[in-house]
Amino acid sequence: MSQGSKIVIKDFNFYYGAVQALRNINLPIQPNQIFTIFGPARSGKTTLLKSLNRLTDLIFGTNHTGSIFLDGTDIYDSKVDLTHLRRRIGIVFDLPTPLPMSIFDNIAYGPKLSRTNRRNRLNEIVEKALRSAALWEEVKDRLHGSALRLSGGQQQRLCIARILALEPEVLLLDEPCSGLDPISTTSIEETLFQLKKDYTIILAPHNIQQASRVADRAGFFLNGELVEEGPVYQIFTKPRDKRTEDYVTGKFG
């Protein structure tokens, strides 16, 4: 097992009923880095991310073999407290998913679930989370307005802030900029850069350019397989595998 890894994925296979979506994945992930998993559509990126905080448990008829260790503990161990796990590993989905409530309540949703936070403590948490997600200045005057009225980019940063409010250890981001314009994308990427020093970040980018811009390490996925993994500059400039090369040079995908 790799020393100093935050997450270690070991011999991991994942099945939706008869469909195998992940094949024998072995991957260590270091803290305080942005690890990007990229690959063509349906290559298993979303499946891997959702497996990491066991959101796949919600889907009926799924199966897995192998293990995923978070700080050395198997997250699929039967003794694991799921709600605790999901607070430690937060996820942002490809489309913005604000809940139908106010901006404040969206951010406070997570914190309110666990502790009996007093109101002023909540105010602090919300402000801090919004500041970390670079959204505070834009929404501070309408915290109690509906989150559904924010723009797409703002909504996505709201979703990031919502996770940050839980002070997680790992951030999973599944194509977080897929519906967004370049300006919103840039501002989210800047946010990620800021966050890197405190979190372990795993990002499924919405294109290769994004992967090369923000990531420290990258793993190339194809048909549920991890083809290769390494530092970003290596993966994008001198990939070891022919398939990776074909993909990054745009021969397919």
């Binding site: 937060g90 949703y109 839980l166």
Partner: peptide, 10 residues
């Protein structure tokens, strides 16, 4: 997605 979000936030 509402449910997924709620579960994902613990």
């Amino acid at each position: 997605s509402y449910r997924e979000v709620s579960y994902s936030l613990g």
